[in-house]
Design a protein around this nucleic acid. Structure first.
Lengths: 228, 228
DNA sequence: AATAAAGTATAACAAATATCACATTTTTTT
DNA sequence: AAAAAAATGTGATATTTGTTATACTTTATT
């Protein structure tokens, strides 16, 4: 059965997108614009949440640092995505960290404003519930993939997922090897070797940091365990 | 740093537990009692959700079946837990399956009743939001553990987690090796080897299916990568 | 209680992936 | 533009974990 890339997408842009123009304006007005330079932390594991973030420009990675210092990245947020509200809403400390992969323009909605919005916009609670319900499925799928699929299939799958995530704004996949390794859940060296194989099999093109998908159909097959 | 077992607990019993006695009664009245024999499916991946479930007696596993037929279990629900509402709330098909590990008594709340309750009990939406926000953290932690920790540490950790999950009701950990392997994310044989080692190191006692924790402190150390 | 079925243990072996050490290239800083 | 720093590529090797095959136990069924 074909792997569905959409099952790995939080669709966090739907929350805002589903609001009426009036509510949306209200929401956007409640935020303050912040700028995060590439590699700057937006929030970090163990920190106390002070608000939520809406990405207006750029991409950011959500990750956890393991005890051995190795990061596990489990999502790359994109322009339009709302994030960082989980810990805020359950009154816990951040379970994860968020770092800008590129220079980012972000709208910050403070905790009090966010809670205020939840009351002002009756629909918002339900939209959050819907979105988090969906996210649950995404994470469950992520767990299964990481725990079960061999490296080659994981890489194929994540290249397709990232391609989708990067496509929205023009570009090809462009992120450090180390990050890609931490998404796929492997060592940098093992990743490099496989990327080379993929290139030799003409599945992708590599131009330094840039990875360009050449044969999505075949990658799809590999990701779906249909191809050896 | 010590691993916190609570960070792997959905705390799904808090939803009901946080309702006022009146609201709780209303909730409980909206359900129909069902019985599921051991190994019976409560719902399954790809199925269309028709309601939510509250476990009144017994335990159930939530899992996904990989393309190779191997299951990945990512949670064991317990008496008092509310489950199966995610797919319901985002209008998607079930992303996972749920099977009774023991004979279960379950309260079924149909979709229409559940939505009705969401309107009748104003607090319920927020409780769901809080709970799902917390669940997000749990799943994120699960991903990191499965993707990064070596088998030995994973097993130590999950033994502690399961011990907590089984403690509520008297017993020691009692579930088939295959299931334990599918929780820890390994092959049955590899699990068996390690269990034997753990027994030889006097960390656990094994009595057929039953696993009894003997040295939680040392298991904790292993789980926290502090012990070789 | 006897038989079948399911689950479990074990050892030898194979495969996948990580680690290490170092060369090379690219990017950033001065 | 040169120097330093960071990131990447590569091969040899070690380690971990999975696989296969088979014997053994426990649990379920008749």
């Amino acid at each position: 059965m074909k792997v569905d890339v959409k099952k790995f997408d939080f669709q966090s842009e739907k929350i805002l997108g589903s609001l009426s123009p009036m509510d949306k304006e209200l929401f956007l007005k409640s935020g303050d614009e912040l700028t995060f330079k590439k590699k700057k932390l937006i929030f970090y594991e163990g920190g106390i949440p002070t608000g939520a973030f809406l990405i207006q420009e750029g991409r950011a990675k959500i990750y956890k640092t393991g005890l051995d210092g190795k990061d596990q990245i489990f999502y790359v947020y994109n322009k339009g995505d709302l994030l960082g509200y989980h810990a805020l809403l359950c009154n816990e400390k951040y379970e994860d960290s968020c770092e800008a992969l590129e220079d980012c323009k972000v709208l910050f909605i403070s905790e009090s404003k966010f809670h205020h919005l939840l009351e002002q916009i009756p629909n918002l609670k339900l939209l959050l519930i819907q979105n988090m319900s969906h996210e649950f499925g995404v994470l469950v799928n992520t767990i299964t993939v990481l725990a079960q699929k061999p490296l080659r299939e994981r890489l194929a799958l994540y290249l397709l997922i990232l391609n989708e995530r990067y496509r929205s704004e023009d570009t090809d996949i462009i992120l450090p090897r180390e990050d890609l390794a931490n998404i796929v859940g492997t060592a940098r060296e093992s990743l490099g070797r496989l990327l080379k194989e993929f290139r030799e099999e003409e599945l992708i093109e590599i131009d330094n940091k840039i990875i360009r998908i050449k044969d999505p159909a075949k990658l799809q097959k590999i990701a779906s365990s249909e191809y050896v």
